[in-house]
Design a protein around this nucleic acid. Sequence first.
DNA 1: CGAATTTTTGACTTCCATCAAGTGTAGTGG
DNA 2: CCACTACACTTGATGGAAGTCAAAAATTCG
Lengths: 231, 231
Amino acid sequence: LGCTNCVSRRRGICAVLNGRQLPVLNAIARRKTIPAGQHIFSEGGGAERYAVIASGVVKLTRSGLEGQRYIIGLKFASDFLGRIFKPEHAYTAEAATDAELCVFSRDSFVRQLSRSPKLERQLFKLALNELDACREWTLLVSRRSAYQRTAGFLHLLAVQGGARIGNSAHLILPVRREEIADFLGLTLETVSRQMTLLKKNSLIKLVSSREVIVPDVEKLGALARAEIPQD
Amino acid sequence: LGCTNCVSRRRGICAVLNGRQLPVLNAIARRKTIPAGQHIFSEGGGAERYAVIASGVVKLTRSGLEGQRYIIGLKFASDFLGRIFKPEHAYTAEAATDAELCVFSRDSFVRQLSRSPKLERQLFKLALNELDACREWTLLVSRRSAYQRTAGFLHLLAVQGGARIGNSAHLILPVRREEIADFLGLTLETVSRQMTLLKKNSLIKLVSSREVIVPDVEKLGALARAEIPQD
DNA sequence: CGAATTTTTGACTTCCATCAAGTGTAGTGG
DNA sequence: CCACTACACTTGATGGAAGTCAAAAATTCG
């Protein structure tokens, strides 16, 4: 089946399915490997496909009226992609790294949703968690300093995507400085400066520009949430 | 019943209930009038009560570690209050103006939810709309200028809470400058300056410091969403 | 009316954006 | 293998938007 080791089986939508229901959902899923950079679905395009991320990182973007592109979120393994109950997707989903997905056609998934109240409720719970996370993120990017925002971004990666050993984490950044900046409402230069500052303050180690070691994930998170913006 | 003219009957959770189901929900609801300033429930406190706003404006706040208080949202007539599926509320709800609520006890509401898939799905849909709105808001408060954020706030009030006549709106601000500032990630001085600037540019009229006329709601919204931060 | 609160306005400072070089780091083809 | 290019990242100098500090004006309320 391939579901046994999937993260979604443990904390995604598949977590609530029993041995009978899982194969049913699996039967309507299509495994797909997406190379980095490829679009999964597009803003405004009809919501004909939904997906669950099995591995990799996915960028959620929106285009402004004058052509600008905004990153509104990053999605990780076990996350659900797509706007159910609406005819159109509200954003574009694009693979930031190579990614494995379970893709569902809209009709078959919605049908399954109506048949399984447990599945619907799980999706509901995940949406509420996302809402909580979105509110938290809003607080970070609207009230915190550039230094804290950058710390917050790395903390997010460490918690959601990174290889963690105890309280330390080894991160491969899925996006460039420019995209981090966009995500945080900053400029790429500022992000770069804050990264070197975080390094100077030994909160991170830069193995290369795209590879970061976080010795103390908790400390980084506390910094991001601190009331008094320091350094 | 009192439901006939209620906004929630038209676009809230009650909108999906038929003539048989509405009285059932109504039977477990307790109408309550809350004076401005009073807490409805508190962050961290057990989620024993949920509510639907029948009229008025409710402030959603969170307290930071060092005692600071953040406004994370404003809720209007027909909005649902409370974090279902979680033992604790994630935020404090406080009446910003005098408000009328339909209060539900946790147990009876959850029981009703399990009995009525339509009700649960409606609540789900509303949560997804809230998520979309939260993402939109994040864009506003992280990437836009103080001028645009202030415009965005007034636009929100005009769309959600204000007395509208065609494309113009008459607003009674439910919160002080300090709270607007907090909500927007600005300072009260900056908000005040932007308000006078909006007045100078004839985008709003200030009847009094708490009463605003928006002649062109669309224009205000377009300004808030514009790529190039002007004036 | 007078006290307290809220709002506006002013002067100055700070943080981050902008503009501009300069430094890697792949990737390509001779 | 080494130019050569293209792209990503860092670092520096400067300016402007919003924050901070301070005081005056307006509004609310007892």
